[in-house]
């Protein structure tokens, strides 16, 4: 055991966020990282996994380098989020909750990003993209694809 002192549990979720995105393009918590956190906080592993799996922003299985969180709240829905979803779905070839075969994008549907005045919204990783249109989303995704080639 590398660390034996107990860290106060109120920092647990922050630690999970930090661990999850420790490296660029990584958006999940590995077994080794989960073990480390469990030891640091003196939490049984099963409980730690139980906590991680409760919160939708954390993942214990490999996800894409980029997480696209598409908002489908009522405010976004009445401003076209469903069309956006179907467009992104076709463009990336994946359903919500899935990762593209190249491991680049994971698509998630979320219930509200709290920017309803600029609906429809999506988040790419930590950045909010508001007032998005099908054209804008194409430009954005294409630019991201290119940037990584």
């Amino acid at each position: 055991m590398e660390t034996t002192f107990m860290t106060s549990r109120d920092t647990l979720l922050s630690a999970l966020h930090e661990t999850q995105s420790r490296e660029k393009g990584k958006s999940w918590i590995t077994d080794g990282e989960a073990l480390q956190i469990a030891r640091r906080y003196h939490i049984p592993l099963a409980e730690l996994d139980g906590i991680v799996s409760f919160y939708k922003m954390f993942a214990r299985e490999k996800r894409g380098s980029h997480i696209i969180r598409l908002c489908d709240s009522l405010s976004c829905r009445v401003r076209g989020s469903l069309d956006l979803y179907h467009h992104v779905r076709r463009k990336l070839g994946i359903q919500a909750g899935m990762t593209t075969p190249d491991g680049r994008f994971t698509l998630e549907i979320v219930n509200c990003l709290g920017a309803c005045d600029k609906a429809p919204n999506l988040m790419i990783d930590d950045s909010l993209v508001s007032g998005i249109t099908i054209g804008a989303i194409d430009t954005l995704l294409d630019a991201m694809q290119e940037a990584e080639l």
Binding site: A46, D49, F54
Partner: peptide, 8 residues
């Protein structure tokens, strides 16, 4: 504590 609630 070998088992715990998972998912929601």
């Amino acid at each position: 504590a070998s088992i715990f609630f998972r998912n929601r």
